[in-house]
């Protein structure tokens, strides 16, 4: 994080599910915490999400999923990110994520996971800490 550039976060709901209360509320909270939000909305394909992430030069991609199809949908987005060579952009996953899938998502390469009812402050702090720890690692090299 350098200078006055705000943290830019893309938020999208991939797949067919249309429930977007969580995505919108988190978007509002991140905005209030000083971040810039690129909100793509629902019914997005992996291609649309990755394309927007490149165009908007975001620091994070956040996916909101409630239907239970998060493993498959996340895999699609990660594949597309690798294909377009933006797999260094950290991926965040939020929504109805049962405990048993958290480790699976982490192993797939998801950096931060916010299951439903994660307090907003926890999510905001996690994003900020992730960036500053990565900045420290980079300067340390």
């Amino acid at each position: 994080m350098n200078g006055a550039r705000k943290i830019r976060v893309l938020i999208a709901s991939p797949g067919l599910d249309g429930h977007d209360r969580g995505a919108k509320v988190v978007a509002r909270a991140l905005k209030d915490a000083g971040m810039e939000i690129v909100y793509l909305g629902i019914h997005r394909t992996a291609e649309e999400i990755v394309k927007a992430a490149i165009q908007e030069d975001v620091d994070f991609i956040g996916l909101s999923m409630l239907s239970g199809a998060h493993l498959i949908l996340t895999e699609q987005v990660l594949k597309e990110m690798a294909m377009q060579k933006i797999d260094d952009v950290p991926l965040i996953v939020g929504g109805t994520i049962p405990k048993r899938d958290i480790q699976k998502l982490e192993e797939m390469g998801v950096r931060l996971i916010f299951p439903t009812q994660t307090p907003l402050d926890t999510s905001i702090a996690a994003i900020q800490e992730y960036l500053s720890s990565r900045a420290t690692q980079t300067t340390g090299k």
Binding site: S67, A69, L73, Q76
Partner: peptide, 16 residues
């Protein structure tokens, strides 16, 4: 309104 073999249906057939 999608058939189960539509690419957008992936992972969602019979789920919710």
């Amino acid at each position: 309104g999608l058939d189960p073999d539509d690419p957008m249906s992936l992972g969602e057939v019979g789920r919710v």
